[in-house]
């Protein structure tokens, strides 16, 4: 992806993050270029979410550096880069006491979106929630909340999308909408980085694979020509688990 002349979009170098005595991320280095589609696999407790939160600027690493387009942002993750990030987690990050539209309007205002009403309506239509737009989200199913979460993450047209186990608990409809949305984002040369346990889905929508085990990067490879079954066997060998 990188032609060698330009700095990577995001670069983490020897990043370490500890929580007490637990080393969640242990010397991770990773380069992500504009338009890259990276999937991170790993068992529970591998430090994937911690790495993600470092990439999103939600937490700062204890050691190592983080740069965006060559600028060091390790300790000062600026408002400019936050404006470029859309974050989809297994939690919806939306308020259950507000309606779907009110949630989107609130986040649109926080991001300074020019026409919040128009943007909210367009996104509600895109994720299939127009008919429930004015219902409070406490009444929504898990899948509907996750569809709203997708809309929330895209409300400011980010060019970097971070997806932390976004398919967890999704119904078929919501999973299809998410896949379709990711496909569109791919076409628009948006950069996305995804953590998932679903190996087949992860390989299908990414260009590069990273396997993280015990806080360290255990393997990276391109998905071009990668056989899912062979990869799955390798993955379970690396993480030391059994594949049933």
């Amino acid at each position: 992806m990188n032609d060698g002349n330009t700095a990577p979009l995001i670069e983490v170098t020897d990043v370490v993050k500890r929580f007490g005595k637990v080393v969640a991320v242990n010397g991770v280095s990773l380069k992500i270029d504009q338009g890259d589609a990276v999937v991170i696999f790993g068992p529970n407790g591998a430090g994937k979410t911690t790495l993600f939160r470092i990439l999103a600027g939600l937490i700062r690493p204890d050691e190592g550096s983080l740069s965006v387009e060559g600028a060091d942002v390790t300790y000062e993750y600026g408002e400019t880069i936050r404006h470029r990030i859309g974050y989809i987690s297994h939690q919806s990050m939306t308020y259950t006491q507000l309606s779907a539209r009110e949630n989107l309007l609130f986040f649109a205002r926080l991001y300074g979106v020019a026409d919040p009403d128009e943007k909210a309506d367009a996104l509600l239509k895109r994720v299939g929630l127009t008919s429930r737009a004015d219902d409070i989200t406490a009444t929504f199913s898990r899948g509907m909340k996750q569809r709203l979460s997708i809309a929330r993450a895209l409300v400011h047209d980010p060019d970097i999308i971070l997806l932390d186990e976004p398919f967890t608990g999704l119904d078929q409809h919501a999973a299809e909408i998410l896949k379709d949305t990711l496909s569109h984002l791919h076409d628009e040369r948006k950069t996305f980085i995804m953590v998932t346990h679903n190996i087949r889905v992860g390989l299908a929508i990414s260009r590069r694979v990273v396997v993280q085990v015990a806080g360290k990067i255990a393997m990276t490879c391109d998905t071009d020509g990668l056989n899912p079954d062979e990869f799955t066997e390798r993955y379970f060998t690396i993480v030391g688990g059994k594949h049933y």
């Binding site: 999103a56 600027g57 400019t80 404006h83 987690s89 926080l110």
Partner: peptide, 8 residues
């Protein structure tokens, strides 16, 4: 986290 991600 959503608030912390906002560019404010």
């Amino acid at each position: 986290s959503a608030l912390m991600l906002a560019p404010i």
